[in-house]
């Protein structure tokens, strides 16, 4: 009977030891996971957000193409762009655009947008449709010139809408010493 008990004790000892080891390993693993979990969770979330953002960019491309096909057929499409020629002469505040005396676009500039225009960025101010024939584009600009003056300028440009996409580039210039704003128009076909 005693011998039998000793055998059981001999058998259960390694089992007990192994069980203890398993528990210890599990505890270490649990603790490691508990410590790393928030970081891992954030990493996974960031990866998933990155994947979503890539899909969003791809879908934006599809939607843009679809919108162009549905809303702006090439034959009647007109786009107006704004660029700065002298990049230090003016701090642009607002731009308002009128096509045939109808207000079609207005924009209030942020610091980031101003900086971008100064760095050579081109803003698409308007995209729309016009019938063939003669039209008038009017732009009203307000800005602060480099010599600390607040300026407001109104300029008009007559143009003829022909078949195909029409692009009108509006270039703003203000040169030293008087920093008088000058707007020029260039048509692309």
């Amino acid at each position: 009977m005693i011998a039998g008990t000793q055998v059981i004790a001999q058998v259960t000892e390694p089992v007990r030891r192994r069980f203890g080891l398993t528990v210890a390993v599990a505890a270490v693993l649990f603790l490691t996971l508990a410590l790393l979990a928030p970081g891992l969770l954030a990493d996974t979330l960031d990866t998933e957000i990155d994947r979503l953002k890539a899909d969003v960019a791809d879908l934006s491309q599809t939607l843009y193409e679809l919108e162009e096909d549905v809303l702006y057929p090439a034959d009647t499409q007109v786009a107006v762009f704004l660029t700065l020629k002298d990049r230090e002469g003016l701090e642009l505040d607002t731009v308002e655009l009128y096509l045939d005396d109808m207000p079609v676009a207005s924009h209030l500039y942020t610091e980031r947008e101003r900086t971008s225009l100064k760095r050579g960025g081109v803003q698409r101010l308007y995209l729309g449709n016009l019938p063939h024939g003669a039209h008038q584009l009017r732009a009203v600009l307000t800005a602060r010139s480099a010599n600390e003056r607040f300026v407001r300028r109104e300029v008009t440009h007559d143009f003829r809408k022909r078949p195909g996409e029409s692009r009108i580039q509006m270039t703003l210039d203000a040169r030293a010493p008087d920093f008088e704003p000058v707007v020029s128009f260039q048509e692309w076909k």
């Binding site: 969003v56 934006s60 980031r112 947008e113 971008s116 960025g121 081109v122």
Partner: peptide, 16 residues
Amino acid sequence: LIGGLAKFALDSGDPA
């Protein structure tokens, strides 16, 4: 022109 448009879009928060 296209390069300028891309630059403005990125700077004004529209990377797509």
